[in-house]
């Protein structure tokens, strides 16, 4: 019931702790599975890409700042929002900048898999 107290203002999906922990456990295995398929060549973009993903904490920052009703919450929420936005925006642009640089050999005929080159 404490969750109700927590979300007086914000509607959200209410899941039980056990379901949340189940999701967490599955996410661990999924994460290991997906990440281990990333080649070493792309490990730096992987790091900045996951950097971007943990910027999802912006959702928490918006929730705090958007419902802040006293000065302390407004200050803390404001700083959290600035940090999280810098995280999201910076992480995305720097990853994009890096990935743009990775190009295959131009002169060579298309690889045997016949994948269409990206625009």
């Amino acid at each position: 019931m404490t969750q109700l107290a927590l979300f007086i203002e914000l509607p959200t999906t209410h899941l039980g702790l056990v379901i949340e922990l189940t999701i967490l456990a599955l996410a661990i295995f999924l994460g290991i599975e997906v990440i281990s398929k990333v080649p070493a060549m792309l490990h730096t973009p992987l790091m900045s890409g996951t950097n971007f993903i943990h910027g999802i904490v912006i959702v928490g920052a918006i929730a705090i700042l958007g419902t802040a009703d006293d000065t302390l919450l407004k200050i803390v929420g404001f700083i959290a929002m600035v940090l999280a936005t810098a995280n999201v925006v910076g992480g995305w642009f720097v990853t994009d900048r890096m990935l743009e640089m990775f190009r295959p050999r131009r002169s060579e005929p298309p690889a045997d898999e016949k994948d269409k080159p990206e625009p």
Partner: peptide, 19 residues
């Protein structure tokens, strides 16, 4: 878990696994 928000739980954990 604080906010009872799955997108944070899963995304955070994906980054945790990667790191």
């Amino acid at each position: 878990f604080v906010l009872s928000n799955t997108v944070l739980i899963v995304s955070g954990m994906l980054v945790g696994a990667s790191g």
